[in-house]
Design a binder for these strands. Sequence first.
DNA 1: TATGAGCGA
Length: 142
Amino acid sequence: MKNAMGMVFLARTILTKPNCPASASKLRYYSSLPSSPLANNKLFVGGLSWSVDEKSLTDAFSSFGEVTEVNILYDKDTGRSRGFGFVNFSKEDDARCAKDAMDGKALLGRPLRISFALEKVRGGPVVVPHLSKIGDIATRNT
DNA sequence: TATGAGCGA
């Protein structure tokens, strides 16, 4: 079984994440203001083929780092993929690496359009009470 | 059935 070693090397080759020379942009933004609406660990992946599911997306991106979350948005009615999704990495270097490497590359026949995801609502939704309801309650309780 | 810019339960 001299192929066993070869298999190990093959596996290591697949599992080894490609090194990213473009990791020089380790700038940190110290502003407390939401000046950058871009998430650093999360990628917006558009241009997905409608036959791509979360598993194939994970397989396509997990070689660049630790993928912590993968979401594909499906249409409520038809159940079909809406053609885009989100891939979350544990390190932003890996996310940038995957973006640089996979942006424009085709997956299942369609070129991927990758960019950093827009930062989702920070701290949860802000519930603004409706003024008419408040008036209602006020008149009812007096 | 076929279709293709964008940012989410």
